[in-house]
């Protein structure tokens, strides 16, 4: 394991890097660099803060939104030390939609915590150049707030006054199929509705990078399918860079432009699939297409 001094953790806000947060739409602009050289790793301390933040780096469209290089994380548990991630590499370009798929315990949630800045790595570089909006696995709606004010919590947490936050949330309810549910109590909402509110809360942070942690894992298959369609429309209206963590291969192939497959603990990249979904294809058409099933079997084979 690298010494603590090598640890580099760096998160920079959107305002510090004047690049369009949404990049150039759906086409991935960043190259994946899966194997960093030893030289990269040793110079990690000097690279990230000063080196890449200059004007030259910003002008380069290849500047990734997220760069994880040789990252390792381990936890001390009662039964000894568990390595959650080991030598993990991932680069996400601006506007890219990346899904991480792997079995339970492959360090997916750890990965999101790293990107969201909630956990420092034990080794390697975590370079996140966009502000991150985290959507946790559970909706975490609070029962003392109405649906609208639950979404508005994202803004109130940032210090916006209560009324102003609710006014900012209101138009989103209309745009994303929640009109009429503004005053609904959380226990009156179905599972899918709750996730929509949680997603709007995530969107309302105004942050360009969405980190979604198995957002639809608790829903039944039919509702999940509906949510996939809904999310696609939502992202078409509000384009964001997305990092989606899931154990559902179909979900990944439906929502992401690139799917990264992970091995079981310690988490490493087992393979990667570029999803070239033809434009104009509906979700139903895409998930029943031949290309889709080929990609799916590839993914499942790599995960095995």
């Amino acid at each position: 394991m690298p010494a603590k001094e090598d640890m580099q953790y760096d998160e920079q806000s959107q305002t510090e890097t004047p690049v369009s947060p949404f990049g150039d739409g759906n086409s991935p602009s960043a190259e994946l660099n899966p194997s960093p050289t030893a030289a990269d790793a040793t110079t990690s301390v000097s690279v990230s803060r000063d080196g890449e933040r200059g004007a030259g780096a910003v002008a380069d469209t290849g500047t990734p939104a997220v760069r994880l290089q040789d990252v390792s994380v381990s936890f001390r548990t009662r039964s000894g030390e568990v390595t959650a991630l080991d030598g993990f590499n991932l680069t996400i370009g601006d506007g890219e939609r990346v899904a991480i798929v792997g079995p339970s315990g492959c360090g997916k949630s750890t990965l999101l915590s790293l990107v969201a800045g909630l956990l420092p790595p034990d080794g390697g570089i975590v370079d996140v150049r966009r502000e991150v909006a985290l959507m946790p696995q559970r909706d975490l709606l609070v029962p003392w707030r109405s649906a609208l004010r639950n979404a508005a919590l994202a803004l109130e947490a940032q210090g916006k006054p209560r009324a102003q936050a609710a006014e900012r949330a209101r138009p989103l309810f209309e745009r994303f199929g929640l009109a009429g549910f503004e005053h609904a109590r959380t226990w009156e909402l179905s599972g899918g509705m709750r996730q929509r509110v949680a997603f709007l809360r995530t969107i309302l942070t105004g942050r360009p990078l969405l980190a979604l942690d198995e957002p639809f894992g608790a829903l039944d298959a039919i509702t999940r399918g509906e949510m996939h369609e809904w999310l696609e429309q939502a992202l078409a209206a509000e384009p964001r860079t997305m990092l989606l963590v899931t154990h559902d291969v179909e979900e990944a192939l439906t929502l992401a432009g690139r799917v990264v497959l992970m091995t079981r603990r310690p988490g490493k990249v087992a393979g990667e699939i570029a999803v070239d979904r033809p434009t104009g294809l509906s979700r139903a058409q895409w998930t029943t297409s031949r290309e889709f099933s080929i990609l799916k079997s590839q993914a499942l084979a790599a995960l095995r």
Binding site: A116, G117, L118, V132, A133, L134, P136, R138, L140, V142, W144, L153, A154, E156, A157, Q158, G159, T205
Partner: peptide, 27 residues
């Protein structure tokens, strides 16, 4: 208070007092 909710508040940028007011006290 649900530790995951606290984690969410942290990721949303809420400080100690704001988390107390918005989430911990009503909860």
């Amino acid at each position: 208070c649900d530790p995951e909710l606290l984690r969410l508040m942290r990721s949303l940028g809420a400080g100690r007092m704001r988390t107390l007011r918005l989430v911990e006290l009503p909860g």
